[in-house]
């Protein structure tokens, strides 16, 4: 390399380099132009297909929040009563999220162990368990929830199953990535003294991966609270259902909607804060152990 460059005059290198950067710049410019064109035409298309236009609706954007806020401030004294009234639904929404995260994580642990190379009980079935995780992960919660509401009736159970279903796939993928980094030495040690597969997994792998599992499960819990509120909106109980009712009563009843908005917002923010603090501690603790 050094020989060749020594024979090439610097001006040639310079022009070659400049030409390359020009071409590169041209390509990135073109890509940017295509991207901008896609975005603009996409927005125009979406605007066309929308019931109301963007520009005609823009000035009305704050009408509804203003209406809700003004009604809520008029009936400010009612708000604490509303908070108490909607608290059970809020607890139900949080319970749906917690229970589904718990069930989903349990299924995910089993699925992830069965689909990790080196740990799997049946190594030949690894692709099968991977596909199962792919499919459950690709399934939006609302699909399962709507079908189950038809069979099981309304209430928290369809929502819980639906969210747990998706959680199993989503966490399973993350868990199996964690498993791949786990040391196999404890497993081999346990195997040499005659431990069964379950014993090897529980005693050899779990202690290594538990902090990471917990951290991912907490993150999932945050996401699932939002999901459970949305599923309530389509009829699966909890605070979302109350929100839908409060919205459908229309003008004059928006103080209830405001109370629900506040409860939901507060819950999401509080859970986010607690969970991110906990996750920080978990990963921080794990790092400390690793250095010791």
């Amino acid at each position: 390399m050094a020989d060749i460059s020594a024979h090439t005059p610097t001006s040639e290198i310079r022009s070659a380099y400049l030409e390359m950067t020009h071409r590169k710049r041209l390509y990135s410019g073109l890509m940017l132009a295509v991207f901008v064109a896609l975005m603009v035409s996409g927005f125009v298309l979406a605007d066309d297909r929308n019931a109301g236009g963007f520009w005609s609706g823009l000035h009305r954007l704050f009408d509804f929040p203003a209406e809700v806020l003004s009604e809520a401030s008029e009936k400010l004294t009612d708000l604490p009563a509303h908070f108490v009234h909607f608290l059970p639904s809020l607890i139900e929404t949080v319970n749906i999220a917690a229970a589904s995260t718990l069930f989903g994580a349990m299924i995910a642990i089993v699925l992830s162990l069965l689909s990790t190379r080196g740990l799997a009980r049946w190594p030949r079935l690894i692709p099968v368990f991977r596909r199962i995780m792919d499919i459950t992960r690709a399934m939006p919660e609302i699909v399962v929830a709507l079908v189950l509401i038809f069979v099981l009736g309304g209430g928290p159970v369809p929502a819980m199953i639906a969210i747990a279903f998706h959680t199993a796939g989503a966490l399973g993928k993350l868990f199996s990535e964690v498993n791949e980094n786990a040391s196999l030495k404890p497993v081999e040690g346990l195997q040499s003294v005659g431990a069964g597969w379950i014993q090897r997994m529980v005693l050899g792998i779990m202690p290594q991966v538990a902090p990471n599992y917990l951290s991912y499960a907490l993150l999932r819990f945050e996401i699932n609270i939002r999901a459970s509120a949305i599923l309530g909106f389509v009829g699966a109980g909890g605070i979302g259902y109350d929100l839908k009712n409060a919205m459908s009563w229309g003008k004059g009843q928006y103080d209830e909607a405001a109370a629900i908005f506040l409860l939901l917002f507060g819950t999401i923010v509080i859970v986010d804060q607690i969970s991110s603090a906990l996750r920080d501690r978990l990963t921080h603790g794990a790092r400390l152990e690793a250095t010791l």
Binding site: A46, R49, N50, P65, I230, F261, L264, F265
Partner: peptide, 28 residues
């Protein structure tokens, strides 16, 4: 940022649907 994230997509959808009506633009 915290406000945008904390007010969930559900609430944003409701608020936006009031202004722009139902459709893909509201969802986007």
């Amino acid at each position: 940022f915290d406000f945008f994230r904390g007010v969930d997509a559900l609430i944003w959808t409701i608020v936006l649907a009031r202004a722009f009506g139902p459709g893909p633009l509201t969802g986007a």
